[in-house]
Design a protein around this nucleic acid. Structure first.
Lengths: 329, 329
DNA sequence: GGTTTTAGATGTAACGTTTCACGCTGCTCG
DNA sequence: CGAGCAGCGTGAAACGTTACATCTAAAACC
């Protein structure tokens, strides 16, 4: 009898059941085997409370069912819901997730990519802020929201389309003069296209459009200063604002209120992301909703489908507009 | 030369460097080895781009550096920040996290515990809603917020103390008649003690105290009904409310506003958790803040310190009060 | 009935590490 | 000056699995 803490092995099962090692392996892996053998082995497995050692499996096959997910943190609602969806999708495909939080630190991102490769995961899904991430070629990797070149597939929302849609919605709601408040990054990341789409949309709609680009890392106060600079006689130059994220939109709404402006009567706001209060309640603001579930599913599909057919280098998924948080008329 | 996709092994390194297998192993694991040997091996490792196969390591040592984290989801801010902290703490201790989301499904929780055990993780940290979770004894497990009996250590906030503190704060702010709004669970989970602490606190303060216990799964509307039942001539029977979570507090505030009551002038509210807008902005409401980082660190310590000394069966960490979201006078 | 075929059980050889008993070298001490 | 010892590199064994070549016995065929 196996000692306590000393788990039984396939060999123990084979001996106990009086069959060969290979037979047990077949039963465990669902490979057809004679009825009486199968039953005998299954009984023995239950009796000994045997469980396969997936590390031995992994070592043999070179495949583990692990996928690494590398993300800045889980505190930002967008990241959290992304990781949440990834977890569900992976579980549905009988894989599991190894999670790494990077806190936006490029070195940590690099380290975790290395670590993931070392852990011999079957794939990596990563949202990185490191522009020169070094990647080994032998593990499939999908990037979210960051385009690293044609070799690495990137999945993202249709940020351009989202920006365009925001312009349309502001126009529809009667705005005459709008501005976009965004946070500029040095990286060529996909969300930067929200601006291009918005500008193009405004142009197409004949909507006067201004921009405020906050440097990445600059204090929020600069947005406040910008708004004050365009605030004369109790009136803001803009009657509509498109904020690069719901988080910015939320803060801007607070600032506008402090300035004595009413939202949405005086200024209308559209955000981007589709963040909900407590993750499952109402939207924080009217917003362009990112298709988080679809992004997750697409990433997982691209990682798991080893089908070496055409893998797109950039794949944008459609966003949708949703009204909430009474930030639009 | 190793073929593409065919990773070099320790043996390849040993052969190439002209040293013994064991020597390479020592270098890789930082075990002291002659200077010249070390340098030679390190050079060869770089040259061949060798990386240890952690599955082979895991198989030999029986230890992997993986800890499973089992949690309902990542969408609820409390869970998300808990997992976020766990990830950081584990990384600092050179471990990594395998994450499983259960969606509160007892069967999934059970399945994931099994899966985690099978994956041969070094430990499990779990916040479970399954009252009769079956656990193998040979993997250390720490439960958060759920007491499963003396055999399984449970880490939690000092929920009783938090309830008591909430009563104190309401009293301090001049409340005369308060109520607690909570969601009752069939499970003997730690957060249930928030009520006991609150009741005891109210008693000690000489504060009239009422309760509304929503059955787990019952619609939020019942809270609304309760409030309306205690609403006469535009006045609520209570001038202070303690809500079992910030999420409930947030909703209650909305309901009170709809009823034409002002928060905090007419009714003051305290929540529980310490949730912040977008994870890093202001508090959603005045609240009893759970020490998430400390909980995470404690869990990790208990899992990793194999020190078989006295392991507490229940460990409560101090909460603190913090004012925010203008829900108190 | 003898031979061929075949299904299916068997057992061995990896997989890439860690561990450990072993043996070699060179130093210390009496 | 020689026995003993410490330090350190060596290489074989073992970890638990999968895959494959081998073998057995029963079924199929003429």
């Amino acid at each position: 009898m196996a000692k306590k803490g000393n788990n039984p092995t396939m060999n123990d099962v084979a001996r106990e059941a009086g069959v060969a090692l290979g037979t047990v392996s077949k039963v465990v892996n669902g490979i057809p085997v004679g009825e009486e053998y199968r039953i005998r082995v299954e009984k023995t497995i239950k009796k000994l409370n045997y469980r396969v050692n997936s590390y031995a499996q992994g070592m043999k096959s070179g495949k583990t069912r692990a996928i690494a997910v590398i993300m800045p943190n889980l505190v930002s609602p967008y990241f959290a819901s992304l990781v949440n969806s990834l977890g569900k999708t992976l579980a549905a495909r009988k894989h599991y997730m190894v999670f790494f939080g990077t806190d936006y630190d490029p070195d940590q991102e690099q380290e975790y990519v290395r670590l993931a490769e070392q852990q011999k995961v079957d794939g990596i899904i990563c949202l990185s802020y490191n522009p020169r991430l070094e990647l080994s070629e032998d593990i499939p990797l999908v990037s979210i929201d960051r385009y690293f070149g044609a070799k690495i597939p990137c999945v993202s929302s249709d940020n351009y389309g989202g920006g365009y849609l925001a312009a349309e919605k502001l126009k529809e709601n009667g705005c005459k003069c709008v501005a976009m408040l965004r946070i500029a990054s040095k990286l060529p990341h996909e969300p930067a296209k929200r601006r291009d789409g918005f500008v193009a949309g405004c142009e197409a709609m004949g909507l006067a459009c201004d921009q405020m680009n906050l440097e990445d890392g600059a204090p929020y106060q600069e947005f406040v200063d910008f708004l004050h600079a365009h605030f004369h006689n109790g009136k803001l130059d803009y009657d509509g604002l498109f904020c690069v994220t719901d988080s910015v939109a939320y803060q801007i709404r607070g600032t506008l209120k402090e300035m004595g402006l009413r939202v949405p009567e005086d200024v209308q706001i559209i955000g981007f992301d589709g963040i909900r209060q407590f993750g499952d309640m109402e939207l924080v603001c009217s917003t362009i909703v990112q298709p988080v579930d679809a992004i997750a599913e697409t990433c997982v599909n691209m990682i798991l489908n080893t089908d070496p057919g055409q893998i797109p280098s950039l794949l944008c998924l459609p966003v949708r507009y949703e009204c909430g948080g009474t930030t639009l008329k």
